[in-house]
Deep mutational scan, measured.
Amino acid sequence: EADPRLIESLSQMLSMGFSDEGGWLTRLLQTKNYDIGAALDTIQYSKHPPPL
């Protein structure tokens, strides 16, 4: 049985245009305790590393 928090967070992320191919988004949301903001921060950080 999927956690209702996961279903809600995942559906919101999917509606933003993200995909869960391979389950990466599910794993990220689980790691971030279903916090969409924290997940988005992680995605943003990985796409744009800080300048040295």
Rank of each mutant, 00 (worst) to 15 (best):
G23K: 08
G37L: 09
Y45V: 15
A39H: 00
L52F: 08
F18M: 07
D3Q: 03
S46Y: 14
L40G: 04
S9H: 05
P50G: 13
I36D: 03
P49N: 12
E1D: 03
L14P: 01
P51S: 12
G23F: 00
G17R: 00
N33L: 03
M16E: 06
I36Y: 05
L14E: 12
Q44S: 13
W24H: 13
G23P: 01
W24M: 10
L28A: 04
D3I: 02
P50D: 12
P51R: 13
D3K: 01
A39W: 00
K32D: 04
L6V: 06
Q44C: 08
L52I: 05
L10M: 10
I7K: 11
Y45R: 15
L40I: 13
L14A: 10
T31P: 02
Q44K: 15
S15L: 09
P4W: 06
A39R: 00
L28N: 05
L6I: 09
T26I: 04
L29R: 01
N33V: 02
G37D: 13
L14Q: 09
S15Q: 15
D35Y: 00
T42W: 11
L40Y: 06
E8Q: 11
K32N: 14
A38E: 11
S15P: 03
A2T: 15
Q44A: 10
M16K: 08
N33G: 10
S46Q: 14
H48Q: 15
L6E: 09
K47M: 09
R5T: 06
L52V: 15
S46L: 13
D20E: 01
E1G: 09
K47C: 08
S19N: 10
A2P: 09
R5A: 08
Q30M: 09
L25D: 03
L40E: 05
E8R: 13
Q30K: 08
A2Y: 04
D41A: 11
L25H: 04
P51A: 12
F18R: 02
G23R: 06
S11W: 06
L52Q: 12
E8I: 09
L40D: 04
L28H: 05
P50I: 12
K47L: 09
P4H: 07
P51L: 10
M13Q: 00
P51T: 14
I36H: 06
D3P: 06
H48C: 12
L10S: 02
E8K: 14
G17F: 01
L29H: 07
H48L: 15
E1A: 09
L28T: 08
P4N: 13
N33F: 01
L52S: 13
W24C: 12
K32L: 10
A38V: 08
Q44H: 13
L25W: 12
Y34S: 06
T26Q: 05
P4T: 09
F18W: 09
D35H: 06
R5I: 03
R5F: 06
D41Y: 06
F18D: 09
D41G: 07
G17W: 00
I36G: 05
L6R: 05
E21A: 07
G22D: 13
S46I: 07
P49A: 12
T31E: 10
I36L: 10
A2I: 14
R27L: 05
G23S: 04
L14N: 13
E8L: 09
G23N: 03
L40P: 04
D35T: 00
Q30P: 05
E21I: 00
P50Y: 09
F18V: 05
N33A: 07
D20W: 00
A38K: 14
P4V: 06
N33T: 04
S15I: 05
T26H: 02
M16L: 10
K47N: 14
P50T: 11
I43Q: 02
M16C: 02
Y34L: 04
L52K: 15
G17H: 00
D20L: 00
L10I: 06
I7F: 12
N33Q: 09
R5E: 08
I43V: 10
P51K: 10
L29V: 03
T42N: 08
E8F: 09
G22V: 01
P49G: 13
S11G: 15
A38N: 04
T31W: 06
L14K: 14
L25P: 02
S15F: 07
F18N: 04
D3N: 07
R27Q: 09
D35I: 00
K47V: 10
Q12N: 07
H48G: 13
Y34A: 06
L40H: 04
Q30L: 11
T31S: 15
L10D: 01
I43C: 06
Y34C: 13
S15Y: 09
L25E: 04
K47H: 11
A38M: 10
H48A: 14
T42E: 13
T31V: 13
M13I: 04
M13E: 01
L10C: 01
L52H: 15
D3A: 02
S15G: 14
G22Q: 07
K32Q: 11
K32G: 04
K47R: 13
S11N: 09
L28I: 08
L10G: 01
F18L: 07
L6T: 05
Q30A: 07
I7C: 08
P51W: 08
S19E: 14
S9D: 03
T42F: 13
E8V: 09
L25N: 02
T26R: 07
I7T: 15
Q30C: 09
R27P: 07
P49I: 14
L28D: 07
E1K: 15
S15M: 14
D20T: 00
S9V: 10
D41P: 03
P51E: 13
A39G: 02
P50E: 14
S11E: 11
Q44N: 08
A2C: 07
D20I: 00
M13Y: 03
I36W: 05
